[in-house]
Design a binder for these strands. Structure first.
Lengths: 148, 148
DNA sequence: TGTGAAATTTAATGGCG
DNA sequence: CGCCATTAAATTTCACA
């Protein structure tokens, strides 16, 4: 199944990716479409699942969690499933994806300092083998890609 | 600098992380705060930078880009800077972070198929050495973390 | 900071091209 | 599908606690 979008839909997706709190009226003005037509399209995009969710990006550094790390995790056989069941006990892990390769999970983790990191690593070692990289800077974040 | 939030702010952050299009009135009802006080707080959270942005998450698979990969990139010396200048010519790369370790950049890339992937890898090889993992599933995505 | 009220702007719906 | 018109709801601003 492939959903084909027109120019209006693409513009809406771009605008909402850049600022998801724009009003329908505001979006409509920017793309020269009435407010009701804009609302209808946004509704369709969410109903079909093209827009998975509207979210806020938070700067955890400002809240005292200035260490952001990427943790790759390696497991024996299918033991990663056990870890996934325990993910809820790792609130510091704000995202986690399963990927191919030796390290089958990749997680983003938000931490106070290196002591906090050590504590998390100790806990992770009960499930698998972690490999940690410190995130230095964010070069591109959730950029909109215009599907052709 | 560390910003300390109270219970109201944390609840607002959680609600907006889960659905950034909630109205102030709706948020206010959920946390038992007037709509104007809620608006004031959301404003403060964005003005101080605690909320970096409001965005939409898009399902590129539904638009024909069903292959999502994580590409790690290795460079000689500081040649990664040259690549960063060319990032704008890689719209398929929707996020890119600088990290510590052998592979100093990690990018999320949205692709049509393996032919598309091959093409991207060929282009990346002009800048550095890529290592690619296919994203299998998203286990946790942009989860809210309640800073203590 | 928070509340409540008034004026302005949006959202939501239904009828029509 | 999109526009317009209408009603309900939300936003914005401000005075006051």
């Amino acid at each position: 199944m492939k959903i084909v979008l027109d120019e209006f839909d693409h513009k809406i997706l771009r605008l909402l990716t850049e600022n998801s709190r724009l009003s329908y009226a505001e979006i409509g003005r920017k793309i020269s479409l009435s407010q009701s037509a804009t609302k209808e399209r946004v509704q369709n995009l969410t109903d079909t699942g093209v827009i998975k969710s509207f979210t806020a990006d938070i700067d955890y550094g400002l809240l005292g969690y200035s260490l952001k790390v990427i943790i790759h995790l390696k497991f024996k056989n299918d033991e990663f499933k056990i870890f996934i069941d325990h993910l809820k006990h790792f609130p510091e892990i704000i995202s986690c994806k399963r990927i191919t390769g030796e390290y089958c999970l990749i997680a983003e983790c938000v931490l106070k300092d290196s002591a906090h990191l050590e504590h998390i690593i100790d806990r992770l070692l009960k499930f698998g083998i972690p490999s940690t990289s410190v995130q230095l800077s964010e070069i591109k974040a959730n950029h909109f890609f215009r599907a052709q």
